[in-house]
């Protein structure tokens, strides 16, 4: 009795300790497993499918690159890519310019800054589907701006980009910049605010005016914000799906298709699984081409 009781306690202690040591791993592993399956497994599956002749149903017969060849000979894919190029460059550029401008203006000891900031940022809280509904209505030639301006006494005014195959993509840009520029503003404002006050004061003593202070001192300091804002915006633009659906539905025709809507259309409407998978793989590769170097430099930079 005297010898076994401590022994039992000791053993329980050891088991408890062992459990404690394994508990963190036990907790993490199912989550990690889920991510392995749902992220990496699914990516692998999609990649695999992109090399098969799958149509309406998955067909696991490998056919090499033929889906990719088909993809790259589909005119609609080129339209989507071209739109992506136009949309992403204008969207990123527009958001950066507007967001940065607003952040700098808001950084000037503004009364009611909080309220103004809230107004600039609220679209980010809304779904593209919701705001798209509003924009669709505003940009609608017979009901929106066009009619409004004509009513003001300019009967020849025309603003029908929404239904013009050549210009419809620009309406997506307008709605996108309106929605996301506040986000860039918030990022930049936080960056500007993090600059040490004493540096700004030193610049004032050195005689730099506002323009020079921003251009040569403050903006170079917040350079990391540029990078992360551009990365985030690029990411949004590649994934953009709901904005196009809500605003133009990809139309007129497929004039405003983006890779995201293209993929969806081929996967769920035209049931061309192999081709859809190939387009999804192209999207993934594009995103990775942007993200991986960024993450790499971020992680490396942090270690330094």
């Amino acid at each position: 009795m005297d010898r076994t009781a401590p022994e039992r306690i000791r053993r329980r202690f050891v088991i408890g300790n062992l459990l404690e040591r394994w508990l963190p791993k036990l907790v993490v592993s199912p989550l990690f497993a889920a991510s392995l399956v749902f992220v990496y497994g699914f990516i692998a599956w999609t990649i695999y499918i992109s090399f098969t002749k799958s149509g309406v149903l998955p067909d696991y017969t490998l056919v090499g690159l033929s889906q990719y060849l088909r993809l790259w000979s589909t005119p609609r894919w080129y339209v989507a890519l071209q739109n992506l190029l136009v949309f992403s460059s204008l969207f990123i550029g527009g958001c950066m310019i507007v967001g940065m401008l607003l952040a700098i203006l808001l950084d000037q000891r503004i009364r009611a800054e909080g309220a103004i900031r809230t107004i600039y940022l609220y679209p980010m809280a809304l779904s593209f589907i919701v705001t798209g509904t509003a924009w669709k209505w505003i940009l609608n030639p017979t009901l929106g701006i066009e009619t409004f301006v004509r009513g003001l006494g300019y009967p020849d005014f025309s603003f029908d980009w929404l239904v013009d195959p050549h210009f419809a993509i620009y309406t997506v840009v307008i709605a996108g910049v309106w929605q996301s520029s506040g986000y860039v503003m918030a990022l930049f404002l936080a960056g500007l605010r993090s600059v040490d006050d004493e540096i700004v004061r030193a610049a004032a003593i050195d005689g730099a005016g506002p323009v020079r202070t921003y251009a040569t001192i403050i903006l170079p300091i917040v350079r990391p914000v540029f990078l992360s804002a551009i990365i985030v915006l690029a990411h949004i633009s590649i994934k953009s799906y709901d904005l196009v659906v809500a605003l133009t539905g990809g139309g007129p025709g497929y004039a405003t298709d983006l890779p995201a809507t293209f993929m969806y259309a081929y996967a769920f409407q035209r049931s061309e699984l192999g081709l859809a998978a190939a387009s999804a793989v192209m999207m993934l590769m594009t995103v990775m081409a942007i993200i991986v170097p960024y993450l790499y430099s971020e992680l490396r930079g942090r270690r330094r």
């Binding site: 993490v28 991510s35 992220v39 590649i238 799906y241 995201a260 998978a277 387009s279 993934l284 995103v287």
Partner: peptide, 20 residues
């Protein structure tokens, strides 16, 4: 493990639509 899981935040979800 963290880095591998974080990657899931960056993928375009189109890549998992079909298998999901």
């Amino acid at each position: 493990i963290f880095a591998l899981m974080l990657f899931g935040a960056f993928i375009p979800f189109q890549i998992v639509l079909l298998p999901m």
